[in-house]
Write a protein that binds this DNA or RNA. Sequence first.
DNA 1: GCTCCCAGTCGAAGCGCTTCGACTGTGGCA
DNA 2: TGCCACAGTCGAAGCGCTTCGACTGGGAGC
Lengths: 342, 342
Amino acid sequence: MPPRMIDVARRANVALSTVSYAINGQRAVSEETRRRIRQAMDELGYQPNALARGLASKHTNILALLFPTPERGLGVTEMEFVVGAADAAREHGYHLVLSPSELRNVRDLEQLTGQGLIDGALVMEVRIDDDRVQLLEQAGVPFSMIGRTSDPGRIDYADIDFEQTTRDAVGHLVELGHRCIGFLNHSPSAFSVGYGPTVRASEGFRRAAATADVVHVERLCGDNAAAGQAAFHEMRAAQPDITALIVMNERAIVGVMDALDEIGWRVPDDLSIVSMVSSTRVTEMMRPKLTTLEPPSTQLGRLGIQMLLDQIDGGAGERAPVQELLPCRLVIGASSGPPPAR
Amino acid sequence: MPPRMIDVARRANVALSTVSYAINGQRAVSEETRRRIRQAMDELGYQPNALARGLASKHTNILALLFPTPERGLGVTEMEFVVGAADAAREHGYHLVLSPSELRNVRDLEQLTGQGLIDGALVMEVRIDDDRVQLLEQAGVPFSMIGRTSDPGRIDYADIDFEQTTRDAVGHLVELGHRCIGFLNHSPSAFSVGYGPTVRASEGFRRAAATADVVHVERLCGDNAAAGQAAFHEMRAAQPDITALIVMNERAIVGVMDALDEIGWRVPDDLSIVSMVSSTRVTEMMRPKLTTLEPPSTQLGRLGIQMLLDQIDGGAGERAPVQELLPCRLVIGASSGPPPAR
DNA sequence: GCTCCCAGTCGAAGCGCTTCGACTGTGGCA
DNA sequence: TGCCACAGTCGAAGCGCTTCGACTGGGAGC
């Protein structure tokens, strides 16, 4: 029912193949012919059939976005990745299919790559040691990652620079005068499965604190208020002099606030709080409005797609892998200030 | 390079077409033959090529998810839609392509449907009067909506039951003893473009309040703290007796809290707050933990896909349209209580 | 004046599948 | 005993494109 290429060809009085060449420029077509073809296409409202094109040409203009849904659930930051990626893909004439593959369902991934549907994949929520990476490699599917494995080798990735980000967080607090800083990280399970941000922020914090020569203490903490509350009390028991807290666990923060109420502490007078890798969209809803290191989520999503397309369009040539670490942006809110004079 | 159907056929000593029939059951195949074919497929690790299949059969097993990115940005609730839809699609053997079409880019939509890539579309963020609906109709693409237009006709949709939800919100407050209730809605621009939830919640609130015979006042309010703060002061000026507030605007809430601080009011002692259509994921991060009417987001996403598939697989037959309104779940937090005895 | 080359065009052969019509052999039934 | 129906199988014709090899007619080069 929709017009086909042959209809365009007939109307423009040329061969089918000439229309094809006019459309994708694989061979020269004279200006006059091209004009007639364009006109015919317009008149018929012609749109090339994506499947036929893909079948014949071996590339589909479809990319997959692999996002597992972690126990933690997906938040604003992840949504921003997705939107960034989807926008970037569309701008380049690609479609993005969403593949909510659980890690356990390696089968799903095989199915996706085996069907010949996708030209490449963007892998989200990468773990330090991620099954999907091997799978994609041996399937020969071009891919890039948001996040990175412990040894990314020559795989393209874009990730948050946790080293820099923790340094910035610690730096901000040190500048304000803090000398004893706590770090509340994600859950023990996130750490033990090797979720990248959890592991890297942990290392980064330790190093940054050591470099700045401040007393520090870290805790892993379940993603809920109760865990946050308990964790803070434990931390304070370990380091009674604590005057500032870096939190990379949005859902634990409210628990910390509860804990502070219990001991009559106020933010930022008695304790400064800096949220790490939280969207301002979230921190602005908290009271006091939190100081945060906001992740460049949309940009990461776009970058991920960009890298992938470079890889695909770039063709076979040996390229240097693109591996970028992006910093978070320090957005100062009302939750950080000078330490109390205790 | 990957095995093709002909390879399977040769290995199982049958015709190509027999393999096809064995796979999708369009014709009877003997048990013995089927066994041999299955074995050959396993040995070769065969996976049908999705494009070839689609080209020949006229359906692709791909659905599109149409989500415009509103000025307001996409939040947790929207993410949950998306995940629900993606999961449901995968469970049924479909892929989901993300189409972040701006409403203005009607061209993008035409391109998507014209390419023959998708079997159907799920439309998110539907407005009272939505261009995309006409476009999809005239393109002959099966689709269903999350949300609904003013006159959905025979189009399938799943939406939140705003009538019921506002009634529940008002009911909860009335039960607590409140007699003067405010409603803080989304922005004037959301209202004027006819964003469904904004419009319907407005009507619902007015009706519910009238039925319950309580004094009520409503304001549209920009999606930010400053607007919320100003709006609350205005509301109180209009109705000094206000003792409870229903808010369907997550980002304005913190502004309301600021306003309360200014006049020395506390929640819920002086003012009860109920958040409408907010994920508990969000309300649990607020202090006090907000009472909310939590939307069945994931379920809506799944339902949307389900309806779409019924429509597609159901075939040509005249079905009754599936039009479902789902209630939100009242989750009582610490932000609502009896009115003060002023 | 002849060859050579190349821009520009055409026809045809696939890409890997679905599906149609045709063919075979068996069993039920009169 | 003969006929028909039908389960089970096969070959071939597309689906709507891309791409390859081949063909044509000028200009450029000598």
